[in-house]
Design a protein around this nucleic acid. Structure first.
Length: 697
DNA sequence: GGAAAGTAAG
């Protein structure tokens, strides 16, 4: 028979009694070794009647102490009542203590096991709940129709696939395959694991179904982003004469909202109202998430009005959804207002506000909220999780503050928060930006170990574009072109980004004919209208090849307004080939641009300076200055032993800079003397030298 | 002594 303990090692205190010693966990230190003494039934009835009343925590504690004094706490029946009461007050550890004080004989009471398993499941101690179930089986007690749904839910939330298969086997072995609640819970389990085919199979075989069975199927389809499947179940439900309730409708809304079918979701919401279905707070949260992603701000305000009028503001998750919606529309003041007016906050509330700031580009503000969350009182137990960390890491990364982003990533590791694919993808983009190959490799290894790289088996357009672009950046034009062909052979349709990547690859590698052909195929074969970036690539390609007149003609005849990239490419080619007449014309166009990019101005100024036209050179600089433009100095950086050092031309590096420049010259000599640059220098040698150069003292 | 619905990061 399959046993759960194959997946979970049994805690030592669940082994046979004779092996127990005081050094075992606190759970067992309460377990008396002698049997339960008989109690008068009257006393038990008396306490039971007290515990059945609606009690405050203080009252419950008083009754508990009376029970303890009279030794009645060893009654499994009273213990199960106490477990449930403590669980209701969120005191799962008190519940565990009560459970542990029941003597061995009392453990035959299934109600007690169910209560303690429920207390742990309710408060998110899923693994502990599974361990309790394993212990219960070890003691030779069989679960009932109450135990199994709880255990299935615990296994689902532990998230281990094999564990779920085992628990399904237990259900079959113990003859619960037709038990309504048990099968409903299995439906929910398969839905959460995205296995709707398994769920369907079970559902179709059910002799009796309740509304919950139907709703669970619908929510499974919603989780799998399958609005078609959800609608099919909804119609089938109506055909069988069942009345969809508020939960059914909410799941139907959710199934559409999750896939970005925003208009359909709103239409369904209207239909829900006309049908007179009660609008739940959950349905409104779905609507708010839709409003967050819609451009239409008025709709959002309309829904907010509905929230206020309907009194749904008291629901924590509705407020969280409101923060999310305001945040997505960059109405940060409103988002913060909702947040600061909340009486209770949970992890989602904090994360919603952090991500609102991070997504709006206010990464410092996002980090300030993050720190505030870390410092907040421990009552809410809201501590930064993987989402909080990922939000701030990505916020800094998208603002180009790569070092800050990496520093946070390091801190996250120190705090032992487990990273996921979102975190890794953000940090990898930082690595690409910083050319931090070592860290990138480290993360790649981590991704392989944690099986995050599986998804690359299904390559998407971004995978192909990244590879084509990567070859292009490194001057491997031929390989870039080959990859482009492979992409077509694989049946993937290129997009405008693919063409930017492949055209710039041609430009970098001087593949003139291939670039021309691709540019022509773009519109004729793939129906992609060239945008300003494609024109800039073509101008660069022709210009670098010395075909300046042709490049200039392209700029003159292009159907869209050329921007600073196009003019910049032309001007750079003029500089390379010292063609002054086209440079003059290009220059006058650049000077009229309203661009805030300073590169072209500096290029132009340098061209004038190189040809000795100092006045013109100065004029361009003055013109740039009068426009309030300030050149951002170019920076380089180097990774030495997991730390990044930035430096720029002319900056005073160090007190020992003469010595440093001496070593640099020596390095340059070594590199030029080698046939292949870098080949004679090991990474270790570069690291050692760089560290010598950069580390203070 | 039950169950199902929602909101946060790329």
């Amino acid at each position: 028979m399959l046993c759960l303990h194959r997946c979970f090692s049994l805690p030592s205190h669940f082994h046979p009694i004779r092996r127990l010693t005081p050094k075992h966990t606190p759970l067992i230190s309460y377990l008396p070794f002698h049997s339960c003494e008989p109690h008068h039934n009257e006393l038990l009835d008396y306490f039971n009647s007290l515990l059945q009343r609606s009690l405050t925590l203080q009252q419950a504690r008083q009754i508990h102490s009376q029970i303890f004094i009279t030794d009645a706490h060893r009654s499994p029946f009273l213990a199960s009542r106490l477990v449930s009461i403590y669980s209701r007050f969120g005191l799962v550890f008190d519940a565990r203590k009560v459970f542990c004080l029941v003597p061995f004989d009392g453990l035959q009471n299934l109600l007690l096991w169910n209560s303690i398993i429920r207390a742990n499941v309710t408060h998110g101690y899923y693994e502990f709940a599974v361990r309790l179930y394993v212990a219960m089986r070890k003691f030779g007690f069989w679960p009932d129709g109450f135990t199994l749904p709880l255990v299935i839910r615990a296994c689902t939330n532990v998230g281990v696939n094999s564990l779920c298969n085992i628990v399904h086997c237990h259900v079959l072995q113990m003859g619960f395959w037709n038990h309504l609640h048990v099968v409903n819970e299995l439906l929910s389990m398969y839905g959460k694991f995205g296995k709707m085919d398994h769920a369907c199979h079970l559902f179709d075989g059910m002799p009796v179904r309740s509304v919950v069975s139907w709703n669970t199927m619908l929510s499974g389809y919603a989780l799998s982003c399958d609005p078609v499947g959800a609608s099919r179940i909804f119609k089938r439900m109506e055909l069988e004469g069942l009345q969809p309730n508020s939960v059914t409708w909410t799941s139907l809304l959710s199934s559409h909202a999750r896939c970005g079918f925003y208009d359909e979701t709103l239409e369904l919401f209207m239909l829900m109202r006309t049908e007179g279905v009660e609008i739940s707070a959950e349905a409104l949260a779905v609507l708010l998430s839709v409003c967050a992603d819609m451009v239409d701000v008025d709709r959002g305000n309309e829904i907010h009005g509905y929230v206020v009028k309907g009194g749904y503001e008291n629901y924590l998750f509705v407020k969280n959804a409101l923060i999310g919606a305001y945040g997505k529309h960059e109405h940060l003041r409103d988002a913060h207002k909702v947040f600061s007016e909340m009486k209770a906050r949970n992890l989602v509330s904090w994360n919603a506000l952090i991500s609102a700031y991070a997504e709006s580009g206010l990464c410092d503000k996002a980090y300030a909220v993050f720190l505030e969350m870390e410092r907040s009182d421990s009552y809410s137990l809201a501590r930064p999780n993987v989402i909080s960390w990922s939000a701030v890491i990505c916020g800094f990364a998208s603002k180009g503050r790569c070092e800050d982003s990496l520093e946070l990533f390091r801190q996250m590791q120190v705090c032992r928060v487990i990273t996921n694919c979102v975190t890794i993808s953000s940090v990898l983009s930082v690595c690409a930006e910083l050319a931090a190959l070592n860290l990138g490799r480290e993360l790649h290894g981590y991704a392989i170990r944690t099986q995050m790289d599986d998804s690359i088996l299904g390559r998407d357009i971004i995978s192909w574009n990244s590879l084509i672009g990567g070859y292009g950046i490194h001057g491997l034009g031929e390989r870039s072109l080959r990859t482009f062909d492979e992409m077509l052979e694989a049946g993937m349709k290129p997009d405008n980004i693919t063409f930017v990547a492949v055209l710039s690859a041609c430009s970098h590698a001087g593949l003139l004919a291939a670039g021309r052909r691709l540019f022509n195929r773009m519109a004729s074969e793939f129906g992609i209208k060239p945008n300003v970036e494609h024109y800039a690539c073509m101008v660069d390609l022709l210009g670098r090849a010395g075909l300046l007149q042709e490049a200039s003609n392209i700029v003159r005849n292009m159907p869209i307004e050329p921007n600073e990239c196009v003019w910049g490419a032309l001007l750079n080619s003029c500089r390379m080939h010292r063609v002054t007449d086209i440079a003059e014309e290009t220059a006058s166009n650049i000077l009229t641009l309203k661009s805030e990019i300073t590169g072209s101005f500096m290029l132009l100024s340098n061209i004038y300076a190189a040809s000795g036209r100092w006045e013109d050179s100065a004029r361009v600089r003055v013109s740039a200055k009068s426009k309030g433009l300030k050149k951002t100095p170019g920076q380089s950086w180097i990774e030495v032993r997991k730390k990044f050092y930035t430096f720029s031309a002319g900056s005073v590096l160090h007190l020992r800079q003469d010595e440093i420049y001496g070593i640099l010259e020596e390095l340059t000599l070594q590199m030029t003397s080698a046939n292949e640059p870098n080949s004679c220098l090991s990474q270790q040698c570069i690291d050692d030298r760089s560290e010598l150069l950069l580390v203070a003292n």
